[in-house]
Write a protein that binds this DNA or RNA. Structure first.
Length: 530
DNA sequence: ATAGGGTTAG
């Protein structure tokens, strides 16, 4: 009987190692440990139900496990452990994600046995319920929930969370009020649904009313503000949070800054988190955000330090992290390194392809960019706006006007992607530098959004290149208007005047700059340019 | 000890 082996194997090195790996969120390691036990003489240990439960839990965390569930089912059957409550519940969980029917028949036809079986059955049903909710089958979930002879707070929470996420907020709240017992997760479930459906203010009220808040409550609220771009609100909640040692909270705050264009703040939060009185170590998620922030700032030196620090912590490179590093490396011109990282990805998706294509575009690798685009199309990965930023900038770099124009048109006609500010900027730059100043100007006028100073700036650069004083003055006035205090545009206009030998204009422009307090010019001198 | 709530890349 399973119980007799259980007593002897609970603390066996194999079981402990597998459980430790599973608890640390290293499912592949847990599975590898179990598999390797077949090469040694450890038959008694590898039939430990607790080890198997941990292995099954790990398998369920891996992406594709349809086949694994059936083979573990057979394995458990052969070991005579199928009826043991823990592996049984873990198997039901494994099945439940992709094969709810198989999970259901396991529960109905091969119920667990022994003292803990009633509770195990509840756990298994909760798994099944969660998977039905995940797959969006609300009626089936509701039916299961109603049929369950025993429900606990997890069952209720799952149901409330499922309804709330599906947008059935009123239903969710009604069910919430019917709960016989509530914990922080119950409140979180409703709050999470409110956030997901754009009711940030209501979510905040809900948050403030909670009798007990868990870390998850804080983090859910912080990331809600992060996604809505309210960095201030997120930051003030983060500062109010008492538990300084929750890695998720640090990660949420760093990501919040990084995703909202506050890369500098992201880095300073990261540095704060490394202070000795904060007892958390950054993980791969932290580093993904931090490396992205370094990349945004163009701070490659710090980025490379971060990378070496990360290696010293023994962090394994996952796909997100590799993609962030691809971005960092391409920005520092280490395109070969970037390619190596890219080729080492476990799975390539639109994000990693786009990072690599943008990197090629930036480094003038047109044929590589096109090759990657073909490759991703063949793999049926649908390009997005960022992918086209990369392609267009590759064409821009190579000065290929017609190809870029075709690409720009193709982007909307075939993929239905509305060109963004960035796409327009690249097109204006390319048109302008090819001498098609009028066409570039017309394109700006046709933009459906208010052009940024940088778009006009690209045209201003072209005016200098082609010494067009008349258009240059007009364009520069747009730049001054949209980015007051930005001395670079004054300098560009000054360069145009100098090239055209309009020294009186140079003089009066300089006077204006002095008056505006813009006299400090970085590096360039327009006298030299003349 | 098995179930539910949160954080990552262009």
């Amino acid at each position: 009987m399973p119980t007799s082996t259980a007593a002897s194997c609970v603390n066996s090195p194999l079981t402990l190692a597998i459980r430790a790996a599973a608890d640390q969120g290293r499912p592949r390691r847990a599975i590898a440990l179990y598999v390797s036990s077949f090469r040694s003489d450890a038959a008694a240990h590898r039939s430990c139900p607790f080890a198997l439960a941990a292995v099954l839990k790990s398998v369920s965390r891996l992406p594709a496990h349809a086949l694994a569930a059936a083979s573990f089912h057979a394995h458990l059957l052969r070991l005579g452990l199928l009826a043991h409550p823990y592996p049984h519940a873990a198997l039901a969980h494994l099945y439940s994600r992709d094969h709810p029917d198989a999970a259901r028949s396991l529960l109905d036809e091969t119920p667990p046995a022994g003292a803990r079986s009633a509770h195990s059955l509840l756990v298994s049903r909760n798994s099944l319920l969660a998977s039905l909710l995940r797959s969006g089958d609300l009626p089936a979930a509701r039916a299961l929930f109603d049929q369950m002879p025993v429900r606990d707070v997890v069952s209720w929470n799952s149901m409330v969370a499922g309804l709330a996420k599906a947008g059935r907020l009123d239903c969710a709240i009604e069910l919430f009020h019917q709960m016989p017992e509530r914990n922080a997760a119950s409140w979180n479930a409703v709050m999470c649904g409110l956030i997901a459906h754009g009711h940030l203010a209501r979510a905040r009220e809900w948050f403030e009313q909670m009798p007990v808040r868990s870390n998850v409550s804080w983090i859910t609220m912080i990331s809600g503000y992060a996604k809505a771009g309210d960095v201030q609100a997120a930051a003030s909640l983060f500062e109010r949070m008492e538990n300084q040692n929750d890695l998720y909270a640090w990660n949420a705050m760093i990501a919040c800054y990084g995703q909202n264009g506050c890369a500098r703040e992201a880095i300073s939060v990261f540095i704060r988190m490394l202070k000795p009185h904060i007892c958390v170590l950054p993980n791969e998620k932290t580093f993904s955000s931090v490396i992205s922030a370094c990349s945004q700032l163009g701070n490659l030196r710090f980025g490379l330090w971060v990378e070496s620090f990360m290696c010293s912590l023994g962090i394994e490179l996952d796909d997100h992290l590799r993609t962030a590093l691809v971005d960092l490396y391409t920005k520092s011109g280490r395109i070969d390194n970037a390619f190596k990282l890219f080729r080492g990805l476990r799975t390539r998706d639109v994000v990693s392809y786009s990072a690599m294509i943008v990197g090629c575009g930036m480094n003038g690798k047109l044929s590589e960019a096109i090759g990657l685009f073909k490759e991703m199309s063949d793999a049926k990965i649908v390009p997005n706006a960022v992918t086209f930023v990369g392609l267009l900038s590759a064409y821009n770099h190579a000065g290929l006007m017609e190809e870029a124009r075709a690409c720009f048109a193709f982007m909307s006609s075939k993929y239905n992607i509305r060109p963004s500010m960035e796409h327009y900027t690249i097109m204006v730059d390319l048109l302008g530098r090819s001498g098609k100043l009028d066409e570039a100007f017309q394109l700006i006028m046709k933009m459906p959004m208010q052009p940024h100073a940088s778009v006009w700036g690209a045209l201003l650069l072209a005016c200098r290149l082609h010494t067009n004083v008349e258009l240059g003055e007009m364009v520069a006035s747009k730049c001054f208007e949209l980015a007051p205090g930005e001395s670079g545009y004054y300098i560009l206009l000054g360069n145009i005047y100098a090239q055209a030998n309009k020294w009186d204009k140079v003089k009066s422009l300089r006077k204006t700059m002095m008056e505006m307090g813009l006299s400090k010019m970085p590096g360039s001198s327009w006298v030299q340019a003349a």
